[in-house]
Lab assay of single mutants.
Amino acid sequence: MTEYKLVVVGAGGVGKSALTIQLIQNHFVDEYDPTIEDSYRKQVVIDGETCLLDILDTAGQEEYSAMRDQYMRTGEGFLCVFAINNTKSFEDIHHYREQIKRVKDSEDVPMVLVGNKCDLPSRTVDTKQAQDLARSYGIPFIETSAKTRQGVDDAFYTLVREIRKHKEKMSKDGKKKKKKSKTKCVIM
């Protein structure tokens, strides 16, 4: 069974824990209790493949930012979460993405942009803004509501699919490099 290491990042209060708990335990946590770091595991079937999701729910508070490099190193894919009623959390996505790329030393890291709290009427981040940002990053965008469960499975499952595509691409690139290195030079 394939294991996928997913990391949920975003500013404090955007609903990272609520999304994760909704996926794992099928219930909505409405009281806000700032996370330092929590880890969850769940076995699911995605596109006919049974897999184990190892999900790291991270601290959004700035005082825990020193811990970010460590979990970013171990993560295979990242859910970059903002709240649709919090423009600052949307603007912060850029910083999370840049930090992930720096730590992973790669421009090509599996990510999904997630606009959470889409059940709320007080939207300050337009869907088109988020779609445009995701398009500019070359990553999928999904709106979710941890409260109603809308888009929750889709967000995590899409990230797994992005990781699969990335692994497939990397193995193809690896095979191309191996083929090239088999060419021999004969000096007579």
Rank of each mutant, 00 (worst) to 15 (best):
T2F: 12
E3T: 14
E3Y: 11
Y4E: 08
Y4L: 13
K5Q: 07
K5D: 08
L6Y: 05
L6V: 13
V7E: 06
V7D: 00
V7I: 09
V8K: 02
V9G: 06
V9D: 06
G10Y: 00
G10E: 00
G10M: 02
G10D: 00
G10F: 03
A11Y: 10
G12M: 11
G12I: 06
V14W: 03
K16T: 04
K16E: 05
S17N: 01
S17F: 01
A18P: 02
A18S: 10
A18N: 15
L19E: 13
L19R: 01
T20K: 04
T20A: 09
T20C: 06
I21P: 00
I21V: 10
Q22E: 11
Q22I: 04
Q22Y: 04
L23D: 05
L23K: 14
L23M: 13
L23C: 13
I24G: 07
I24L: 15
N26F: 06
H27W: 15
H27P: 03
H27M: 15
H27S: 15
H27F: 15
H27K: 14
F28P: 03
D30E: 13
D30G: 09
E31S: 06
E31G: 06
E31V: 07
Y32M: 03
Y32E: 05
Y32A: 04
Y32F: 04
Y32P: 04
D33C: 02
D33K: 01
D33R: 00
P34L: 02
P34F: 03
T35E: 00
E37Y: 11
D38Q: 01
D38L: 00
D38V: 03
S39D: 06
Y40Q: 00
Y40C: 00
Y40L: 01
Y40G: 02
R41V: 09
K42F: 11
K42M: 09
K42Y: 09
Q43W: 06
Q43E: 13
V44K: 13
V44Q: 13
V45E: 12
V45Y: 09
V45M: 10
I46A: 13
D47M: 07
D47L: 05
D47G: 11
D47A: 10
G48P: 09
G48H: 11
E49R: 11
T50S: 11
T50H: 09
C51N: 12
C51K: 12
C51M: 13
C51L: 12
L52D: 14
L52K: 14
I55P: 03
I55V: 12
I55D: 02
L56T: 15
L56D: 10
L56C: 15
L56V: 15
D57S: 02
D57Y: 02
T58G: 05
T58E: 09
A59H: 02
G60E: 03
G60D: 04
Q61A: 14
Q61W: 04
Q61P: 07
E62Q: 08
E62C: 07
E62P: 11
E63K: 05
E63A: 05
Y64F: 08
Y64T: 05
